[in-house]
Amino acid sequence: MGQGEEVVSLFYIGTAIMLFLAFGLMFIVVTYQRHFFRMKRKEAENMLRVSLESEKNERARIAADLHDGVSGDLSAIKNYLSVLAKKESVNQTIFDEIKEGVDAALQNTRAVSHNLMPPLLETEGLVPALKNHLNNVGPKAQIEFEVITNGVDQLPPLVAYQLFRVLQELTTNMIKYGNVSKSEINLLLEKDSLKIEISDNGVPFNFKENLAKPNASGLKNITSRLHAIGGTIVQNEEKPKGNQFTITIKNINHA
């Protein structure tokens, strides 16, 4: 091999090696970054799941404390008042007022406790708890809520809890801002996939646009809860009046 050919070979081999090293370095960086990204996302998902689970357990604990502790004490006070009221020397009017106050406190405590952790949700599942909640809030807000279920019996407890909270948030928004008079919630279970359609006749609002606002904690809560159970929420933007949302959860038994 002449000297010229040797130099040319060295040139090509050297260039190829340097290019290989350079591309190799960039490839390693891109691959590592993707792996790193996946790990961070998994970590964030785990943290979200743990955080929501802790929140649920804490709510249950506080609800139980309120029910067993505060409610119990208020009931005891009510009983003492009943005993004292039977004594003739006591001012009946004042006692009646005190009893009314205690009754109100007892009712409020029970309401707070049920709101924190609806007992029906744990004992009978999503649909009865949802119907009970809407029967309570509907008349006060002058909204006619209708819940239609197709093949939805028992859902996994975590899914039922998160869906309850999501639907509670959506219906609360309807009451606060929606100017709604009628709303329908349609639950449909097909094979392993759950679909929930929520529609109302209120003021139209754009979910995506409002989600991007800094004070959208309620909407962000909705998306976080759905994300934790593998669900998505899509708004039907073609609806001319009111609002319609579809929540979809695939592989519901593995959520």
Binding site: G4, V7, V8, F11, G14, M18, A22, M26
Partner: peptide
């Protein structure tokens, strides 16, 4: 990316230019 590929791939050509001209 552009800078690294350009310089790493180009270092051999720039070092060898004179020698290539002398040899070929």
């Amino acid at each position: 990316l552009g800078t690294v590929i350009y310089l790493c791939g180009g270092v051999i050509p720039v070092l060898f230019t004179g020698h290539l001209f002398k040899a070929t």
